[in-house]
Design a protein around this nucleic acid. Sequence first.
DNA 1: GTCTATACGAGGATAGAC
DNA 2: GTCTATCCTCGTATAGAC
Lengths: 214, 214
Amino acid sequence: MAQTKAGKNNSTKPVRDAEATQAVILAAAEEEFAQNGLTATRTEAIAAKTGVAKSMIYYYFKDKEGLYRAVLERSHADLLRAIQNLDLEQLSPEVALEKFLRTLLDCVSRNPRLPTIMFHEAVQNQGKYYESSSSVNIDTVLINILERGVRTEVFRSLDPFQSAINIMGACLFYFIGAGNIQRFPQGKQLLSKAMLERHTQESISLILAGVRQS
Amino acid sequence: MAQTKAGKNNSTKPVRDAEATQAVILAAAEEEFAQNGLTATRTEAIAAKTGVAKSMIYYYFKDKEGLYRAVLERSHADLLRAIQNLDLEQLSPEVALEKFLRTLLDCVSRNPRLPTIMFHEAVQNQGKYYESSSSVNIDTVLINILERGVRTEVFRSLDPFQSAINIMGACLFYFIGAGNIQRFPQGKQLLSKAMLERHTQESISLILAGVRQS
DNA sequence: GTCTATACGAGGATAGAC
DNA sequence: GTCTATCCTCGTATAGAC
């Protein structure tokens, strides 16, 4: 599916680049899906953002659902890879937890749309497009860390399953609120570099203090 | 299903009851809006759930947006009232925080759809239907508690604004994930009474431990 | 590969009978 | 107050020219 790339373009063909077109479609689609979810997103809105014809979506991704799948996979890839490569087994629970959180927060800070994409998928589609893979594993990693911490008594005797959810919430909710919270006092830039770093730090502090054995 | 309001029904009229009809529509609409948000919800889906004709929606609520506004207000009312009546000023920050959290968690446990409604409104509509009221105030109350706690040094020196968001996330994320998480190990009933109580307890423990001066 | 034009079904909203 | 039937816009998806 790859031809007419730049460079070979020295003759007749105008500005046609399959990969580039796909890329702009994916980028625009990610924005739209993040805000609206699968059903409420209009293919026309995506097309409008890209500047390319609406029919290009169907040419490259078959239909809206195909595009959605592509966006879902693409947007989760970074995080999944990062979490999988973490190798936390030989770290102390506390260090492991901090490393996990920093990785998670780093990824979503780089792509703040990811949390809202996850949430739309979870709420609207009940995670049906996740199949057996994806975000489920992330929670499992976290649960394991917590279990180990409780067992070795460096963490207080919390419920690992419940706490994992609450911890994810503490980290990710920020990005969900971001759109809404813009209309807060003198419009703080929640997604500015400084604020994102602060969020990372505050989240980690809250959680580490929250799980630690007192 | 809407019928048999009984009581006033002792005379001529058959099973017609304006309030009852409105009530079933509101109930069904709340479910649908909670799952799909404003745009993705189909009025037909609401009608199908109620058993009443689709046109009743327009008769009572003018249009889909009108119904949405009604659902939004109705679903937030409990929580807003509860939070407003809290009168936390004379309590110590720690006690105030626990009371606030317990109230919040109690309300959303009684109506687990509220968090997803808030979520959709925040993400999809950027909170435009909230006007000046609603959930904004809730965060403000929490921020005030945190500020007071930091000032009096019973809480560690956290960022009240950031922490307020993270705390809300820790409490509410559970309900967002609930739909998706059903498909977890041996289908835990996340919304069962027992699990909701556990969530309440775990959230409060995590947060109190997380903010306390060590 | 990219565009324009269009078919066609879904869904919001209304009219009018009962 | 409630229903059925219908209108008509909007949105997905395809056809076909370039």
